[in-house]
Design a protein around this nucleic acid. Structure first.
Length: 542
RNA sequence: GCCCGUGUGGGGUAAUUUGGAUAUCCUGAAGGCCUGCGGAGCCUUAGAUUCGGGUUCAAAUCCCGGCGCGGGCGCCA
Protein backbone atom coordinates (compact mmCIF):
# COMPACT_ATOMS: atom_id res chain seq x y z
CA UNK A 1 0.00 0.00 0.00
CA UNK A 2 1.25 3.46 -0.89
CA UNK A 3 1.48 6.25 1.66
CA UNK A 4 1.64 9.87 0.52
CA UNK A 5 -0.29 13.14 0.70
CA UNK A 6 -3.07 12.11 -1.65
CA UNK A 7 -4.64 15.46 -2.54
CA UNK A 8 -7.10 13.81 -4.86
CA UNK A 9 -8.51 11.71 -2.07
CA UNK A 10 -8.62 14.62 0.35
CA UNK A 11 -10.55 16.76 -2.14
CA UNK A 12 -12.89 13.94 -3.12
CA UNK A 13 -13.70 13.07 0.47
CA UNK A 14 -14.65 16.65 1.09
CA UNK A 15 -16.74 16.94 -2.05
CA UNK A 16 -18.53 13.72 -1.18
CA UNK A 17 -19.88 15.33 1.98
CA UNK A 18 -21.73 17.83 -0.22
CA UNK A 19 -22.57 16.01 -3.44
CA UNK A 20 -22.79 12.43 -4.51
CA UNK A 21 -19.78 11.86 -6.74
CA UNK A 22 -17.87 8.71 -7.62
CA UNK A 23 -14.14 8.19 -7.23
CA UNK A 24 -13.71 8.04 -10.97
CA UNK A 25 -15.47 11.38 -11.52
CA UNK A 26 -12.18 12.94 -10.52
CA UNK A 27 -9.02 12.23 -12.43
CA UNK A 28 -5.55 13.58 -13.04
CA UNK A 29 -5.76 16.58 -15.33
CA UNK A 30 -3.71 16.90 -18.47
CA UNK A 31 -4.11 20.35 -19.98
CA UNK A 32 -6.85 21.53 -17.68
CA UNK A 33 -5.78 21.67 -14.08
CA UNK A 34 -3.90 19.26 -11.87
CA UNK A 35 -7.06 17.35 -11.05
CA UNK A 36 -10.38 17.59 -12.80
CA UNK A 37 -13.92 16.72 -11.73
CA UNK A 38 -16.62 15.80 -14.24
CA UNK A 39 -19.95 17.39 -13.37
CA UNK A 40 -22.11 16.37 -16.34
CA UNK A 41 -24.70 14.98 -14.00
CA UNK A 42 -25.07 18.41 -12.40
CA UNK A 43 -25.11 20.35 -15.61
CA UNK A 44 -28.48 21.96 -14.91
CA UNK A 45 -27.12 23.76 -11.88
CA UNK A 46 -23.41 23.61 -12.40
CA UNK A 47 -22.84 27.22 -11.32
CA UNK A 48 -24.24 26.44 -7.91
CA UNK A 49 -22.36 23.15 -7.65
CA UNK A 50 -19.18 24.91 -8.65
CA UNK A 51 -19.53 27.67 -6.10
CA UNK A 52 -20.34 25.30 -3.23
CA UNK A 53 -17.43 23.03 -4.07
CA UNK A 54 -15.12 25.96 -4.57
CA UNK A 55 -15.92 27.46 -1.19
CA UNK A 56 -15.35 24.09 0.49
CA UNK A 57 -11.82 23.91 -0.93
CA UNK A 58 -10.20 25.75 1.96
CA UNK A 59 -7.21 23.43 2.23
CA UNK A 60 -3.80 24.99 2.23
CA UNK A 61 -2.59 23.04 -0.81
CA UNK A 62 -5.30 24.45 -3.07
CA UNK A 63 -4.05 27.13 -5.42
CA UNK A 64 -7.28 27.80 -7.28
CA UNK A 65 -10.47 26.18 -8.53
CA UNK A 66 -12.07 26.96 -11.90
CA UNK A 67 -15.23 26.04 -13.76
CA UNK A 68 -14.78 25.19 -17.44
CA UNK A 69 -17.78 23.79 -19.25
CA UNK A 70 -18.88 20.64 -17.47
CA UNK A 71 -15.64 20.30 -15.54
CA UNK A 72 -14.29 21.76 -12.36
CA UNK A 73 -10.51 22.06 -12.50
CA UNK A 74 -8.39 22.06 -9.38
CA UNK A 75 -4.93 23.59 -9.28
CA UNK A 76 -2.54 22.55 -6.52
CA UNK A 77 0.25 24.75 -5.19
CA UNK A 78 3.57 23.59 -6.66
CA UNK A 79 5.33 24.41 -3.40
CA UNK A 80 3.10 21.92 -1.56
CA UNK A 81 3.66 19.20 -4.13
CA UNK A 82 7.41 19.67 -3.96
CA UNK A 83 7.29 19.65 -0.15
CA UNK A 84 5.33 16.40 -0.23
CA UNK A 85 7.92 14.73 -2.44
CA UNK A 86 10.90 16.11 -0.55
CA UNK A 87 9.54 15.36 2.92
CA UNK A 88 8.79 11.78 2.02
CA UNK A 89 12.26 11.28 0.58
CA UNK A 90 13.83 13.03 3.56
CA UNK A 91 11.95 11.01 6.16
CA UNK A 92 11.52 7.59 4.54
CA UNK A 93 14.15 7.67 1.81
CA UNK A 94 11.50 7.27 -0.88
CA UNK A 95 8.42 8.80 -2.43
CA UNK A 96 5.84 7.44 -2.03
CA UNK A 97 6.36 5.64 1.26
CA UNK A 98 4.78 2.21 1.65
CA UNK A 99 2.98 0.14 4.23
CA UNK A 100 4.33 -3.41 4.23
CA UNK A 101 1.65 -5.92 3.34
CA UNK A 102 1.46 -9.15 5.35
CA UNK A 103 0.70 -11.31 2.33
CA UNK A 104 3.29 -12.89 0.06
CA UNK A 105 3.27 -13.03 -3.71
CA UNK A 106 4.87 -15.47 -6.11
CA UNK A 107 5.46 -14.48 -9.71
CA UNK A 108 6.17 -17.35 -12.03
CA UNK A 109 7.83 -16.28 -15.24
CA UNK A 110 10.02 -17.48 -18.10
CA UNK A 111 9.72 -21.23 -17.41
CA UNK A 112 11.12 -21.89 -20.87
CA UNK A 113 11.80 -25.49 -21.73
CA UNK A 114 15.53 -26.07 -21.27
CA UNK A 115 15.93 -27.21 -24.85
CA UNK A 116 17.41 -24.15 -26.51
CA UNK A 117 18.73 -20.63 -26.06
CA UNK A 118 16.22 -17.97 -25.04
CA UNK A 119 15.07 -15.77 -27.91
CA UNK A 120 13.50 -12.31 -28.16
CA UNK A 121 10.02 -13.85 -28.07
CA UNK A 122 10.45 -15.73 -24.82
CA UNK A 123 12.29 -12.88 -23.18
CA UNK A 124 9.07 -10.88 -23.23
CA UNK A 125 7.82 -13.28 -20.59
CA UNK A 126 10.89 -12.74 -18.39
CA UNK A 127 10.88 -8.97 -18.76
CA UNK A 128 7.18 -8.70 -17.92
CA UNK A 129 7.54 -11.08 -14.99
CA UNK A 130 10.59 -9.40 -13.53
CA UNK A 131 9.10 -5.90 -13.90
CA UNK A 132 5.83 -6.91 -12.27
CA UNK A 133 7.85 -8.51 -9.47
CA UNK A 134 9.77 -5.28 -8.90
CA UNK A 135 6.59 -3.20 -9.01
CA UNK A 136 4.76 -5.38 -6.51
CA UNK A 137 7.76 -5.37 -4.19
CA UNK A 138 7.91 -1.59 -4.42
CA UNK A 139 4.23 -1.43 -3.59
CA UNK A 140 4.95 -3.16 -0.31
CA UNK A 141 4.07 -6.79 -1.00
CA UNK A 142 6.80 -9.30 -0.24
CA UNK A 143 7.44 -11.24 -3.42
CA UNK A 144 9.53 -13.96 -4.99
CA UNK A 145 9.93 -15.11 -8.55
CA UNK A 146 9.90 -18.71 -9.66
CA UNK A 147 11.02 -20.61 -12.75
CA UNK A 148 9.14 -23.84 -13.39
CA UNK A 149 11.66 -26.10 -15.07
CA UNK A 150 9.96 -28.43 -17.43
CA UNK A 151 12.23 -31.44 -17.30
CA UNK A 152 9.66 -34.08 -18.01
CA UNK A 153 8.02 -34.93 -21.26
CA UNK A 154 9.36 -35.88 -24.64
CA UNK A 155 11.27 -32.69 -25.35
CA UNK A 156 13.70 -33.04 -22.49
CA UNK A 157 13.93 -36.77 -22.96
CA UNK A 158 15.00 -36.05 -26.54
CA UNK A 159 17.67 -33.71 -25.25
CA UNK A 160 19.00 -36.48 -23.04
CA UNK A 161 18.78 -39.15 -25.72
CA UNK A 162 20.39 -36.88 -28.30
CA UNK A 163 23.50 -36.66 -26.22
CA UNK A 164 23.69 -40.39 -25.72
CA UNK A 165 23.18 -41.19 -29.37
CA UNK A 166 25.24 -38.51 -31.05
CA UNK A 167 27.75 -37.11 -28.55
CA UNK A 168 28.15 -39.91 -26.05
CA UNK A 169 31.87 -39.57 -25.42
CA UNK A 170 32.00 -35.83 -25.65
CA UNK A 171 31.63 -33.25 -22.95
CA UNK A 172 28.10 -32.15 -22.14
CA UNK A 173 28.27 -28.65 -23.54
CA UNK A 174 25.23 -26.62 -24.50
CA UNK A 175 26.30 -26.84 -28.15
CA UNK A 176 26.54 -30.64 -28.11
CA UNK A 177 23.25 -31.00 -26.32
CA UNK A 178 21.36 -28.74 -28.69
CA UNK A 179 22.92 -30.42 -31.70
CA UNK A 180 21.88 -33.86 -30.46
CA UNK A 181 18.39 -32.55 -29.72
CA UNK A 182 18.05 -31.18 -33.24
CA UNK A 183 19.22 -34.50 -34.68
CA UNK A 184 16.61 -36.44 -32.72
CA UNK A 185 13.92 -34.21 -34.14
CA UNK A 186 15.12 -34.44 -37.71
CA UNK A 187 15.45 -38.24 -37.54
CA UNK A 188 12.51 -39.26 -35.37
CA UNK A 189 10.03 -39.54 -38.23
CA UNK A 190 12.26 -41.70 -40.42
CA UNK A 191 13.84 -43.85 -37.72
CA UNK A 192 11.39 -46.02 -35.73
CA UNK A 193 14.15 -46.95 -33.28
CA UNK A 194 14.38 -43.39 -32.04
CA UNK A 195 10.66 -43.17 -31.58
CA UNK A 196 10.71 -46.42 -29.60
CA UNK A 197 13.62 -45.31 -27.43
CA UNK A 198 11.94 -42.02 -26.57
CA UNK A 199 8.78 -43.91 -25.72
CA UNK A 200 10.64 -46.36 -23.47
CA UNK A 201 12.50 -43.64 -21.65
CA UNK A 202 9.27 -41.75 -21.13
CA UNK A 203 7.58 -44.74 -19.51
CA UNK A 204 10.62 -45.46 -17.37
CA UNK A 205 10.66 -41.83 -16.36
CA UNK A 206 6.99 -41.65 -15.52
CA UNK A 207 7.01 -44.75 -13.37
CA UNK A 208 9.47 -42.95 -11.14
CA UNK A 209 12.91 -44.25 -12.09
CA UNK A 210 14.73 -41.83 -9.84
CA UNK A 211 18.11 -42.63 -11.34
CA UNK A 212 16.94 -41.62 -14.78
CA UNK A 213 15.09 -38.57 -13.48
CA UNK A 214 18.28 -37.31 -11.87
CA UNK A 215 20.33 -37.88 -15.02
CA UNK A 216 17.82 -35.97 -17.08
CA UNK A 217 17.75 -33.17 -14.50
CA UNK A 218 21.52 -32.89 -14.86
CA UNK A 219 21.28 -32.70 -18.62
CA UNK A 220 18.55 -30.08 -18.53
CA UNK A 221 20.37 -28.01 -15.96
CA UNK A 222 23.22 -27.38 -18.39
CA UNK A 223 20.89 -25.77 -20.91
CA UNK A 224 19.01 -24.05 -18.11
CA UNK A 225 22.25 -22.46 -16.98
CA UNK A 226 22.73 -20.89 -20.40
CA UNK A 227 19.21 -19.47 -20.24
CA UNK A 228 19.69 -17.96 -16.79
CA UNK A 229 23.04 -16.50 -17.90
CA UNK A 230 21.16 -14.64 -20.64
CA UNK A 231 18.59 -13.42 -18.12
CA UNK A 232 21.33 -12.23 -15.78
CA UNK A 233 22.70 -9.96 -18.49
CA UNK A 234 19.37 -8.11 -18.35
CA UNK A 235 19.48 -7.94 -14.56
CA UNK A 236 16.89 -10.68 -14.17
CA UNK A 237 17.59 -13.06 -11.31
CA UNK A 238 15.12 -15.82 -10.48
CA UNK A 239 14.52 -16.32 -6.76
CA UNK A 240 13.51 -19.99 -6.86
CA UNK A 241 13.37 -22.95 -9.23
CA UNK A 242 10.93 -25.82 -9.18
CA UNK A 243 11.62 -28.95 -11.19
CA UNK A 244 8.56 -30.54 -12.67
CA UNK A 245 10.10 -33.99 -12.21
CA UNK A 246 10.00 -33.58 -8.44
CA UNK A 247 6.24 -33.84 -8.52
CA UNK A 248 6.52 -37.17 -10.25
CA UNK A 249 9.37 -38.37 -8.05
CA UNK A 250 7.56 -37.63 -4.83
CA UNK A 251 4.24 -39.00 -6.01
CA UNK A 252 2.30 -35.72 -5.84
CA UNK A 253 0.76 -36.25 -9.26
CA UNK A 254 -0.53 -39.66 -8.30
CA UNK A 255 -1.98 -38.24 -5.08
CA UNK A 256 -3.79 -35.48 -6.92
CA UNK A 257 -5.35 -37.89 -9.37
CA UNK A 258 -6.44 -40.04 -6.45
CA UNK A 259 -8.04 -37.13 -4.67
CA UNK A 260 -9.93 -36.16 -7.80
CA UNK A 261 -10.98 -39.71 -8.62
CA UNK A 262 -14.68 -39.10 -7.95
CA UNK A 263 -14.76 -36.31 -10.49
CA UNK A 264 -12.76 -38.05 -13.18
CA UNK A 265 -14.13 -40.07 -16.04
CA UNK A 266 -12.32 -42.72 -18.00
CA UNK A 267 -11.82 -43.57 -21.61
CA UNK A 268 -10.08 -46.89 -21.47
CA UNK A 269 -7.44 -46.31 -18.84
CA UNK A 270 -7.00 -42.63 -19.67
CA UNK A 271 -8.65 -40.29 -17.17
CA UNK A 272 -10.21 -36.95 -17.96
CA UNK A 273 -12.30 -34.24 -16.41
CA UNK A 274 -15.26 -32.74 -18.20
CA UNK A 275 -15.56 -28.99 -18.52
CA UNK A 276 -18.63 -28.08 -20.51
CA UNK A 277 -18.48 -30.37 -23.49
CA UNK A 278 -14.70 -30.62 -23.42
CA UNK A 279 -12.64 -33.48 -22.15
CA UNK A 280 -9.43 -32.44 -20.45
CA UNK A 281 -7.17 -35.45 -20.07
CA UNK A 282 -5.06 -35.85 -16.95
CA UNK A 283 -3.53 -39.22 -17.72
CA UNK A 284 -2.74 -41.23 -20.81
CA UNK A 285 -3.86 -44.72 -21.71
CA UNK A 286 -0.59 -46.03 -20.24
CA UNK A 287 -1.21 -44.24 -16.96
CA UNK A 288 1.45 -41.55 -17.36
CA UNK A 289 0.47 -38.02 -16.44
CA UNK A 290 -0.21 -35.07 -18.72
CA UNK A 291 0.74 -31.40 -18.47
CA UNK A 292 -2.67 -30.38 -17.14
CA UNK A 293 -2.38 -32.75 -14.18
CA UNK A 294 1.15 -31.67 -13.37
CA UNK A 295 0.21 -28.02 -13.64
CA UNK A 296 -2.63 -28.53 -11.16
CA UNK A 297 -0.19 -30.10 -8.74
CA UNK A 298 2.25 -27.27 -9.27
CA UNK A 299 -0.38 -24.62 -8.54
CA UNK A 300 -1.57 -26.35 -5.40
CA UNK A 301 2.06 -26.50 -4.33
CA UNK A 302 2.51 -22.76 -4.94
CA UNK A 303 -0.57 -21.92 -2.91
CA UNK A 304 0.86 -23.66 0.16
CA UNK A 305 3.31 -20.82 0.75
CA UNK A 306 1.90 -17.83 -1.10
CA UNK A 307 -1.28 -15.79 -0.86
CA UNK A 308 -1.01 -14.33 -4.30
CA UNK A 309 0.06 -16.26 -7.38
CA UNK A 310 0.88 -14.53 -10.64
CA UNK A 311 1.54 -16.56 -13.79
CA UNK A 312 3.08 -14.89 -16.81
CA UNK A 313 1.94 -16.84 -19.86
CA UNK A 314 2.00 -16.61 -23.63
CA UNK A 315 -1.41 -16.07 -25.15
CA UNK A 316 -1.36 -19.62 -26.49
CA UNK A 317 -1.97 -20.67 -22.87
CA UNK A 318 -5.26 -18.80 -22.53
CA UNK A 319 -7.52 -21.83 -22.83
CA UNK A 320 -5.27 -23.92 -20.66
CA UNK A 321 -5.28 -21.26 -17.93
CA UNK A 322 -9.04 -20.92 -18.11
CA UNK A 323 -9.52 -24.65 -17.62
CA UNK A 324 -6.88 -24.79 -14.94
CA UNK A 325 -8.54 -21.95 -13.07
CA UNK A 326 -11.89 -23.70 -13.31
CA UNK A 327 -10.60 -26.93 -11.82
CA UNK A 328 -8.59 -25.18 -9.13
CA UNK A 329 -11.63 -23.28 -7.91
CA UNK A 330 -14.36 -25.83 -8.46
CA UNK A 331 -12.67 -29.06 -7.44
CA UNK A 332 -9.64 -28.18 -5.35
CA UNK A 333 -10.63 -25.22 -3.11
CA UNK A 334 -7.71 -23.17 -4.30
CA UNK A 335 -6.96 -20.79 -1.42
CA UNK A 336 -4.82 -18.04 -3.00
CA UNK A 337 -5.51 -15.09 -5.20
CA UNK A 338 -4.36 -15.96 -8.70
CA UNK A 339 -3.78 -13.72 -11.72
CA UNK A 340 -2.81 -14.82 -15.21
CA UNK A 341 -0.83 -12.29 -17.18
CA UNK A 342 -0.92 -12.97 -20.89
CA UNK A 343 1.34 -11.49 -23.49
CA UNK A 344 1.15 -11.46 -27.27
CA UNK A 345 3.66 -13.25 -29.42
CA UNK A 346 6.77 -11.60 -30.78
CA UNK A 347 7.34 -11.95 -34.49
CA UNK A 348 10.17 -10.75 -36.70
CA UNK A 349 9.71 -8.37 -39.60
CA UNK A 350 10.71 -11.36 -41.74
CA UNK A 351 7.79 -13.38 -40.39
CA UNK A 352 7.05 -15.71 -37.53
CA UNK A 353 9.85 -16.85 -35.31
CA UNK A 354 10.66 -20.48 -35.81
CA UNK A 355 13.50 -22.41 -34.20
CA UNK A 356 13.32 -25.15 -36.80
CA UNK A 357 13.54 -22.77 -39.74
CA UNK A 358 16.33 -20.91 -38.01
CA UNK A 359 14.29 -17.72 -38.12
CA UNK A 360 15.07 -16.56 -34.59
CA UNK A 361 16.93 -13.76 -32.85
CA UNK A 362 18.42 -14.94 -29.58
CA UNK A 363 18.76 -12.67 -26.59
CA UNK A 364 22.53 -13.16 -26.69
CA UNK A 365 22.65 -11.96 -30.32
CA UNK A 366 20.55 -8.94 -29.53
CA UNK A 367 22.56 -8.12 -26.45
CA UNK A 368 25.89 -8.32 -28.25
CA UNK A 369 24.75 -6.19 -31.17
CA UNK A 370 23.29 -3.57 -28.83
CA UNK A 371 26.50 -3.38 -26.81
CA UNK A 372 28.48 -3.04 -30.03
CA UNK A 373 26.26 -0.33 -31.45
CA UNK A 374 26.13 1.74 -28.27
CA UNK A 375 29.89 1.39 -27.71
CA UNK A 376 30.47 2.80 -31.19
CA UNK A 377 28.26 5.80 -30.39
CA UNK A 378 29.94 6.42 -27.04
CA UNK A 379 33.41 6.34 -28.59
CA UNK A 380 32.30 8.91 -31.11
CA UNK A 381 30.51 11.20 -28.64
CA UNK A 382 32.90 10.85 -25.71
CA UNK A 383 36.31 9.98 -27.05
CA UNK A 384 37.88 10.75 -23.67
CA UNK A 385 36.18 7.80 -21.92
CA UNK A 386 38.36 4.83 -20.96
CA UNK A 387 37.72 1.34 -22.27
CA UNK A 388 36.32 0.33 -18.88
CA UNK A 389 33.87 3.23 -18.92
CA UNK A 390 32.75 2.42 -22.45
CA UNK A 391 32.23 -1.22 -21.44
CA UNK A 392 30.25 -0.35 -18.37
CA UNK A 393 28.03 2.15 -20.17
CA UNK A 394 27.39 0.08 -23.26
CA UNK A 395 26.39 -2.92 -21.16
CA UNK A 396 24.03 -0.78 -19.11
CA UNK A 397 22.53 0.63 -22.29
CA UNK A 398 22.08 -2.80 -23.83
CA UNK A 399 20.27 -4.26 -20.82
CA UNK A 400 18.12 -1.15 -20.34
CA UNK A 401 17.35 -0.76 -23.99
CA UNK A 402 16.24 -4.33 -24.54
CA UNK A 403 14.03 -4.24 -21.46
CA UNK A 404 12.54 -0.83 -22.15
CA UNK A 405 11.69 -1.51 -25.79
CA UNK A 406 9.75 -4.61 -24.80
CA UNK A 407 8.10 -3.45 -21.60
CA UNK A 408 6.81 -0.15 -23.01
CA UNK A 409 4.36 -2.02 -25.23
CA UNK A 410 1.12 -3.15 -23.61
CA UNK A 411 1.65 -6.87 -22.94
CA UNK A 412 -1.42 -8.18 -24.68
CA UNK A 413 -0.50 -6.62 -28.00
CA UNK A 414 1.47 -8.63 -30.50
CA UNK A 415 4.94 -7.21 -31.03
CA UNK A 416 7.14 -7.18 -34.08
CA UNK A 417 10.84 -7.11 -33.42
CA UNK A 418 12.76 -4.77 -35.74
CA UNK A 419 16.50 -4.30 -35.62
CA UNK A 420 16.38 -0.61 -36.53
CA UNK A 421 14.00 0.07 -33.65
CA UNK A 422 16.01 -2.04 -31.22
CA UNK A 423 19.13 -0.08 -32.08
CA UNK A 424 17.50 3.37 -32.10
CA UNK A 425 18.76 5.39 -29.15
CA UNK A 426 16.78 8.57 -29.69
CA UNK A 427 13.35 9.70 -28.62
CA UNK A 428 11.31 7.09 -26.78
CA UNK A 429 14.31 4.98 -25.78
CA UNK A 430 16.33 3.88 -22.78
CA UNK A 431 19.38 6.06 -23.56
CA UNK A 432 17.13 9.13 -23.75
CA UNK A 433 16.02 8.36 -20.21
CA UNK A 434 19.52 7.56 -19.01
CA UNK A 435 20.88 10.72 -20.54
CA UNK A 436 18.44 12.96 -18.69
CA UNK A 437 19.51 11.33 -15.45
CA UNK A 438 23.18 11.91 -16.26
CA UNK A 439 22.43 15.58 -16.90
CA UNK A 440 20.77 15.87 -13.51
CA UNK A 441 23.74 14.19 -11.83
CA UNK A 442 26.13 16.52 -13.58
CA UNK A 443 24.23 19.54 -12.23
CA UNK A 444 24.24 18.12 -8.72
CA UNK A 445 27.98 17.54 -8.81
CA UNK A 446 28.54 21.17 -9.74
CA UNK A 447 26.33 22.83 -7.15
CA UNK A 448 26.10 22.98 -3.38
CA UNK A 449 23.25 21.84 -1.21
CA UNK A 450 21.47 25.01 -0.16
CA UNK A 451 17.97 25.74 1.06
CA UNK A 452 15.27 27.66 -0.72
CA UNK A 453 11.74 28.43 0.29
CA UNK A 454 10.37 30.17 -2.77
CA UNK A 455 6.68 29.84 -3.52
CA UNK A 456 6.81 31.11 -7.09
CA UNK A 457 7.40 28.69 -9.93
CA UNK A 458 7.34 29.17 -13.68
CA UNK A 459 5.45 26.87 -16.05
CA UNK A 460 8.40 24.51 -16.66
CA UNK A 461 9.17 24.18 -12.97
CA UNK A 462 5.50 23.60 -12.22
CA UNK A 463 5.19 20.93 -14.88
CA UNK A 464 8.20 19.01 -13.59
CA UNK A 465 7.10 19.24 -9.95
CA UNK A 466 3.69 17.93 -10.90
CA UNK A 467 5.23 15.07 -12.91
CA UNK A 468 7.13 14.03 -9.79
CA UNK A 469 4.21 14.43 -7.42
CA UNK A 470 1.88 12.21 -9.47
CA UNK A 471 4.24 9.20 -9.44
CA UNK A 472 2.17 7.28 -6.84
CA UNK A 473 -0.96 7.50 -8.98
CA UNK A 474 0.84 5.77 -11.85
CA UNK A 475 2.34 3.21 -9.50
CA UNK A 476 -1.07 2.45 -8.03
CA UNK A 477 -2.53 2.01 -11.49
CA UNK A 478 0.20 -0.31 -12.62
CA UNK A 479 -0.38 -2.52 -9.56
CA UNK A 480 -4.16 -2.46 -9.95
CA UNK A 481 -3.99 -3.61 -13.53
CA UNK A 482 -0.68 -5.50 -13.28
CA UNK A 483 0.69 -3.49 -16.15
CA UNK A 484 4.35 -2.50 -16.23
CA UNK A 485 3.95 -0.47 -19.43
CA UNK A 486 2.21 2.18 -17.33
CA UNK A 487 5.52 2.78 -15.53
CA UNK A 488 7.36 3.02 -18.86
CA UNK A 489 4.90 5.69 -19.99
CA UNK A 490 5.34 7.51 -16.71
CA UNK A 491 9.14 7.59 -16.94
CA UNK A 492 9.00 9.01 -20.43
CA UNK A 493 6.58 11.71 -19.28
CA UNK A 494 8.81 12.56 -16.31
CA UNK A 495 11.93 12.74 -18.47
CA UNK A 496 10.25 14.91 -21.08
CA UNK A 497 9.19 17.32 -18.35
CA UNK A 498 12.76 17.42 -17.11
CA UNK A 499 14.26 18.07 -20.54
CA UNK A 500 11.91 20.97 -21.17
CA UNK A 501 12.74 22.37 -17.76
CA UNK A 502 16.45 21.89 -18.37
CA UNK A 503 16.42 23.76 -21.66
CA UNK A 504 14.30 26.66 -20.44
CA UNK A 505 15.55 27.16 -16.91
CA UNK A 506 19.23 27.99 -16.56
CA UNK A 507 20.54 26.95 -13.17
CA UNK A 508 24.23 27.36 -12.44
CA UNK A 509 25.05 30.96 -11.62
CA UNK A 510 21.39 31.92 -12.00
CA UNK A 511 19.48 33.77 -9.27
CA UNK A 512 17.05 30.83 -9.19
CA UNK A 513 19.79 28.26 -8.69
CA UNK A 514 18.85 27.12 -5.20
CA UNK A 515 15.18 26.73 -5.96
CA UNK A 516 15.84 24.87 -9.19
CA UNK A 517 18.38 22.55 -7.62
CA UNK A 518 15.77 21.44 -5.08
CA UNK A 519 13.71 20.28 -8.04
CA UNK A 520 16.66 18.57 -9.72
CA UNK A 521 17.58 16.67 -6.57
CA UNK A 522 14.04 15.40 -6.16
CA UNK A 523 13.94 14.45 -9.84
CA UNK A 524 17.06 12.34 -9.41
CA UNK A 525 15.41 10.32 -6.63
CA UNK A 526 12.16 9.73 -8.50
CA UNK A 527 14.11 8.67 -11.56
CA UNK A 528 16.11 6.14 -9.58
CA UNK A 529 12.97 4.80 -8.00
CA UNK A 530 10.92 4.43 -11.17
CA UNK A 531 13.70 3.28 -13.51
CA UNK A 532 14.60 0.48 -11.13
CA UNK A 533 11.08 -0.93 -11.46
CA UNK A 534 11.81 -1.71 -15.09
CA UNK A 535 15.45 -2.66 -14.64
CA UNK A 536 16.69 0.45 -16.44
CA UNK A 537 20.24 1.01 -15.21
CA UNK A 538 20.97 4.67 -14.54
CA UNK A 539 24.55 5.90 -14.54
CA UNK A 540 25.93 9.27 -13.42
CA UNK A 541 27.98 9.45 -16.60
CA UNK A 542 26.87 8.09 -19.91
C1' G B 1 -15.46 -24.35 -39.43
C1' C B 2 -15.98 -23.14 -34.10
C1' C B 3 -13.92 -20.38 -29.73
C1' C B 4 -10.86 -16.29 -27.60
C1' G B 5 -8.41 -11.69 -28.52
C1' U B 6 -7.35 -7.41 -31.51
C1' G B 7 -7.84 -3.15 -35.37
C1' U B 8 -5.78 4.60 -33.78
C1' G B 9 -1.39 9.49 -38.80
C1' G B 10 3.61 6.52 -43.72
C1' G B 11 5.62 3.00 -39.40
C1' G B 12 5.15 2.31 -33.99
C1' U B 13 2.24 3.65 -29.75
C1' A B 14 -1.09 6.10 -25.43
C1' A B 15 -6.02 7.12 -24.07
C1' U B 16 -10.64 1.92 -24.24
C1' U B 17 -11.51 -1.25 -17.49
C1' U B 18 -14.63 3.60 -15.32
C1' G B 19 -18.16 6.83 -22.39
C1' G B 20 -16.96 13.24 -21.48
C1' A B 21 -12.76 19.04 -23.02
C1' U B 22 -8.41 20.18 -28.35
C1' A B 23 -7.10 11.83 -29.50
C1' U B 24 -0.79 11.21 -26.34
C1' C B 25 4.12 10.38 -27.36
C1' C B 26 8.11 8.39 -30.57
C1' U B 27 9.88 7.60 -35.50
C1' G B 28 9.93 9.07 -40.53
C1' A B 29 8.89 14.02 -43.65
C1' A B 30 9.42 19.67 -43.95
C1' G B 31 11.40 23.83 -41.35
C1' G B 32 13.70 26.13 -37.01
C1' C B 33 16.71 26.78 -31.94
C1' C B 34 21.88 26.70 -29.68
C1' U B 35 29.60 30.00 -28.44
C1' G B 36 24.49 25.54 -24.56
C1' C B 37 24.54 23.89 -16.87
C1' G B 38 26.46 17.29 -21.31
C1' G B 39 22.76 17.96 -28.61
C1' A B 40 21.51 10.61 -27.11
C1' G B 41 18.42 17.73 -26.46
C1' C B 42 14.40 21.57 -27.47
C1' C B 43 10.57 24.16 -30.70
C1' U B 44 7.14 24.62 -35.14
C1' U B 45 4.23 22.38 -39.34
C1' A B 46 1.57 18.40 -42.01
C1' G B 47 -0.52 13.62 -40.92
C1' A B 48 -4.90 8.77 -37.59
C1' U B 49 -9.71 6.31 -34.42
C1' U B 50 -11.04 -0.68 -40.06
C1' C B 51 -16.22 -0.52 -42.40
C1' G B 52 -21.74 -0.46 -41.59
C1' G B 53 -25.64 -0.01 -38.09
C1' G B 54 -27.35 0.86 -32.84
C1' U B 55 -27.52 3.02 -27.62
C1' U B 56 -26.52 8.11 -25.49
C1' C B 57 -27.02 14.98 -24.16
C1' A B 58 -22.02 12.82 -25.50
C1' A B 59 -18.71 6.97 -28.71
C1' A B 60 -11.73 5.64 -30.32
C1' U B 61 -14.19 3.84 -25.74
C1' C B 62 -20.46 0.31 -24.84
C1' C B 63 -23.82 -3.22 -28.12
C1' C B 64 -24.80 -5.93 -33.00
C1' G B 65 -22.93 -7.28 -37.90
C1' G B 66 -19.01 -7.35 -41.90
C1' C B 67 -13.82 -7.33 -43.13
C1' G B 68 -8.40 -7.71 -41.72
C1' C B 69 -4.78 -9.61 -38.27
C1' G B 70 -3.04 -12.79 -33.94
C1' G B 71 -3.87 -17.11 -30.88
C1' G B 72 -6.46 -21.69 -29.61
C1' C B 73 -9.34 -26.04 -30.93
C1' G B 74 -3.76 -33.09 -29.12
C1' C B 75 -4.16 -39.22 -24.41
C1' C B 76 2.00 -32.34 -26.89
C1' A B 77 3.90 -28.74 -23.47
Amino acid sequence: MLLFDDYKKIMLDKIKTIYSVQDNDMELGTNFGDFTLKIFKFKDNREEVYSRIKSSMDMEFIDRVELQGNYINFYIKSSKMLDTVENSIGTFGKYPNTFQDTSKALIEHTSSNPTGPIHVGRIRNSIIGDSIFRIIERYGTRSLTQYFVNDSGKQVISLYLGHIKYHKDEEMTVENLLDGYQKIYTNIDSDPDIKREVQELDEKYETGDNELIKEIQNTASIVLKSITDSLAKLGIHISTYVWESNFIMYGNVAQLIDSLSEDLKSEGKAKYIEIGDKKIFLTRQDGTSLYFARDLVYHMFKSENFDWIIDVLGEDHKDHAKNLDYVLHNYLDFPSRIDYLFYGFVSLDTGKMSTRKGNIVTVNDLYEKTVEESAAIIKQKRPEYSKEEVDKISNAIAASSIRYNIIKINANKPLTFRWDEALNFEGDSAPYIMYAYARACSLISKTGNTESSTEEYNEFEKALIKAMYVYPYYLQNSVDFLRADIIAGYILYLVKSFNEFYLNCPIIGNSEENKRMRIVRAFKKIMEDSADLLGIQLLEKI
